[in-house]
Amino acid sequence: MTAKPCLTFLLMDPPFESARTTTAFRLIHSALAQGHDVKVFAYEGAVSLAFARQAAHANGVHGRDAAQEAHPLTREWIAFLQADAGARGARLEWVNCGLCVDERGVGETVPEVRRGSPVDFLKMVKESVNTLVVPTR
């Protein structure tokens, strides 16, 4: 199979704090939909995006139980994007900064998320046609 052009994203924001997270996921989805492989390096708070123990909750203000509320979870977004990529014959590679994981205690991740370091990010950059850093603010 011919390798697809690849884009790398670096994310920094933790989940549930910033609209940049949703925007970044939309960009990743769009890149996959347009025939790119995508590599993501999650740095600092963004390593929690893949944390396997994120839990959906009910919302009394909305008057909905947990099932009705269907609270978005970034770990599910990652899993759905991985599945979407697979269905398109594309690849979504997700690497968490290992030290960032350790200091936050979020080593339990959804499948196919691996630990790495900024050196892995450098490799991703070299294998990609372009790179977008989405820093925290």
Binding site: S117, P118, F121, L122
Partner: peptide
Amino acid sequence: DTVLWFTQVLRGAEA
């Protein structure tokens, strides 16, 4: 600073 640290690691990898 997390970006200075990151830059030092990249430099250490000869970027």
